[in-house]
C-alpha cells in the first residue's frame, strides 16, 4: 500500500514541474493561438542562463533565477516583437515552422557553447533534505518547492488575467481580435507582453528543471511533449486545468514507473491518450468556444 501512496505523492509533486513547463505554453496558446514548438528548448536555454549567472556571479540558483527574470522578459518581448508577430495571421503554418526552426537553432547553439555534457543547478543542502511522511513515504524539499511554485505561478497568472486591465485585454484579444483593436488594444504589443510573461514562467520552470535532474542541450523536445500533454489533458479552459493536467501526467508517470521502472514515460503517454479518447477537449475545456 505504502509504495502506491508514495507513487501518488511523488506523482503529484512531479506534476508541479510539468505544470510549470506547461503554464507558459498554455498562456501563449490561449492568447494568440500560437503553438510555440521552441518552448522546451527555451526552458533549457533558460536553465543554461541561470547556470551561467550562478557560475559567474557565484550566486545560488534561486538568486540566479531572479536575476535572469528581467533578462528573459525582455528576450521574450523582443522575440515576439521582432519575429513571431510577423508570422501570425490566418495561416497556422508559418508560426509552427518558425518556432520549430528556433528550437533547432537554440539546441545547436547550446551544444556549440556548452557541449553535450550534462549539467545541474546545485541548490546546496535543500537538495538532500526531505520529510518523512510515513515509513516508506518521503517528500523532498525541492519537490515540495516545485509544487508550491507551480501553485504560486498559477495563482499569479490568475490574478493578472482576472484582476487587471492587462488581463482583460489579454482575454478580449483572445476572444475577438478585431473588436479588441476597436478598444484601443494594440494587439502586437499585447502579444509581446504575453510572450514576456511566458518567458518569466518558463525561467521559473527552468530553475526546477535544473534542480530536479541533469540537463543537457538536447532534452528540450521531451519537456515540450510533457508540457503539451499537460495542456491538452487540462483543457484550455483555465490555468488551474493546466496545473491539474500536469499532475495527472506526473501521477501517471510515477504509477507507470512503480509497475515497471521502464514504464515511467509510457505511463504519462497512456494517460494522455486515454484523456484524448474519452475527453478530446480535455478535462476543463473552455466554455465559450
Amino acid at each position: 500500500m505504502a509504495v502506491w501512496a508514495n507513487a501518488l505523492i511523488q506523482g503529484i509533486l512531479l506534476g508541479g514541474l510539468y505544470a510549470l513547463f506547461a503554464a507558459g505554453l498554455s498562456l501563449i496558446f490561449g492568447i494568440m493561438r500560437l503553438v510555440n514548438l521552441a518552448h522546451g528548448d527555451l526552458i533549457v536555454l533558460a536553465a543554461f542562463i541561470i547556470l551561467t549567472i550562478a557560475t559567474w556571479l557565484g550566486l545560488d540558483p534561486f538568486a540566479a533565477m531572479l536575476a535572469a527574470l528581467p533578462i528573459m522578459f525582455v528576450a521574450g518581448f523582443a522575440l515576439q516583437h521582432l519575429l513571431l508577430n510577423r508570422t501570425l495571421g490566418r495561416d497556422l503554418l508559418p508560426p509552427l515552422l518558425v518556432t520549430f526552426g528556433l528550437s533547432i537553432i537554440i539546441e545547436n547553439g547550446l551544444l556549440e557553447l556548452f557541449s553535450a555534457d550534462s549539467r545541474r543547478l546545485h541548490g546546496g543542502a535543500i537538495e538532500t533534505t526531505s520529510f518523512a511522511l510515513g515509513p516508506d513515504v518521503a517528500v523532498g524539499v525541492v519537490q515540495l518547492l516545485t509544487l508550491a511554485s507551480a501553485v504560486a505561478v498559477i495563482l499569479a497568472l490568475n490574478v493578472v488575467f482576472y484582476r487587471t486591465a492587462l488581463g482583460r485585454a489579454f482575454r478580449a484579444t483572445s476572444d475577438d481580435l478585431e473588436i479588441a483593436q476597436l478598444m484601443g488594444i494594440d494587439h502586437p504589443r499585447i502579444f509581446s507582453l504575453a510572450m514576456g510573461l511566458s518567458f518569466i514562467v518558463l525561467t521559473i520552470a527552468a530553475l526546477y528543471l535544473g534542480m530536479h535532474a541533469n540537463f543537457d542541450p538536447t532534452i528540450g523536445p521531451q519537456r515540450l511533449l510533457y508540457a503539451f500533454e499537460a495542456v491538452i489533458v487540462g483543457g484550455l479552459g483555465s490555468f488551474w486545468g493546466t496545473l491539474f493536467g500536469g499532475i495527472i501526467i506526473g501521477i501517471a508517470q510515477t504509477i507507470g514507473a512503480q509497475l515497471n521502472p521502464e514504464w515511467q514515460i509510457l505511463g504519462g503517454h497512456v494517460a494522455f491518450l486515454a484523456v484524448l479518447v474519452f475527453k478530446p477537449r480535455g478535462l476543463f475545456p473552455r466554455t465559450t468556444d
Partner: peptide, 27 residues
Amino acid sequence: IALVPEGRRLFPSLCVEENLLVGRYGR
C-alpha cells in the same frame, strides 16, 4: 472614434462590467 459593431460582438469570456471596462483600455 468608437464603433459599436454590427451584431454587438461582446467579449464572451468577459462579464458585463469587464466588457464595459475594456472599452477604456486604450483611451
